[in-house]
Design a protein around this nucleic acid. Structure first.
Lengths: 218, 218
DNA sequence: AGATGTGAAAGTTTTCACAGCC
DNA sequence: GGCTGTGAAAACTTTCACATCT
């Protein structure tokens, strides 16, 4: 007979976290950072909800998946909750991020400072275009994608940002997954096959525009 | 006594279209374009499903929201289905698109050719930074955002791509909505309030990265 | 009184499974 | 035999409403 360990309990909870819940945690976190900058001590689910555009029950359900962070009658402690969500999202860990694809979009993503500011600095850039390979962005040399394996073997890229044409996306994915990448942010317009345990998030600008077009057509 | 008009019937159907359905329609469309280039005549929901990563029942349900496009025993005609989906998504219409924000991300989005290729060419760029206003990208002069109203009054921007800092996002939205914009592609990390009838699609890169971080932490 | 945490209800989306047409 | 279109079932997500704690 085995007493359930805390870890097991927690994983049980984790399974209840849907993608939507995780997305909302990110937006709660953003708000909490603002509130902390304003030196606010506590916040209610009601206010959290209003400021992020959801219902208060939703906020409470989302948080209750991971623990009991609030105090009845009082609300949530801003600092504590910020910390808990950072922990849940794995933001204490620093992830090693590589960018594959140094075209217009890749360059844009690289020069966009958001990734670094949010704790995901791009540590290496790869491409296959001989005109690009060897040149530098901000002192970071663009490497040939053939070198990915060598570089990753020294220290794997846990996350790869994929900004290559759709036709070569799968090929790149197979290589990076073989070298230990377990998270892919996919800007390519292509369905990716990945083994279990590898997470893919799609950022598809044409789908977003077409969805707007649909809404505007009604 | 009134006979229901075709338009009414169709709107009834349309209401059943969730965001997920519309998103999937976009990915079916992408595949259909490829198949058409390969001169394939018909396709089954089964194959459509396999190649886009969903189930065949899902494909059939999604399409059945808008009509009966298939033939039992045969499948769907590739050309016809492509055309129907284009029509459903409003892609025969050309939308006038403006970009607000000429920072790193804005520049990236502008130089990314995807928008133009997919039928959403950016027709004007606005910013408030005096260092940027007046300079040109590809022969297109960056205008001061104060001019937005004047330019839009001549011909409204139906869609605005928002690539400004979160702090000013709401202010920009209020202005563009007042000038007739009904679709917003939001890259700013901020919750936007818009009146009913205005569609917003979020592209939030930090949320996407945090969601990967969460997945990798398990 | 004020606000959380949570079962139960309601709503939504996906899958099943099969009648009906080719 | 093959494949669509679709009600019904299952799965999932959100909202309600209230017991419980401060």
């Amino acid at each position: 007979m085995k007493t359930p360990e805390p870890e097991e309990e927690r994983s049980l909870h984790m399974d209840r976290a849907s993608t939507s819940t995780v997305t909302r945690l990110s937006s709660y976190l953003r708000l909490l950072r603002e509130l902390e900058a304003e030196d606010l001590e506590t916040i209610s689910s009601k206010l959290l909800a209003e400021r992020t555009g959801v219902t208060s029950a939703q906020v409470r359900k989302d948080l209750s998946v991971f623990g009991n962070f609030g105090r009845r009658g009082l609300g949530y402690n801003v600092h504590r909750l910020r910390d808990e969500i950072r922990e849940i999202l794995g933001l204490h860990h620093t992830w090693r991020v590589g960018l594959v694809g140094a075209g217009n979009l890749g360059q844009a993503l690289y020069s966009y400072e958001g990734f670094g500011r949010q704790g995901f600095p791009i540590e290496a850039v790869f491409d296959t275009d001989p005109d690009k390979v060897g040149s530098s962005w901000n002192g970071l040399e663009i490497k040939h994608f053939e070198e990915f394996t060598r570089v990753a073997r020294r220290k794997p890229f846990e996350i790869v940002i994929l900004a290559v044409p759709g036709e070569v996306a799968q090929e790149v994915v197979d290589t990076v997954v073989a070298e230990g990448t377990r998270g892919i942010l996919n800007f390519a317009s292509a369905k990716l096959d990945v083994p279990p345990g590898v997470a893919v998030r799609e950022v598809d600008l044409s789908i977003a525009m077409e969805s707007l077009s649909f809404a505007l057509s009604r």
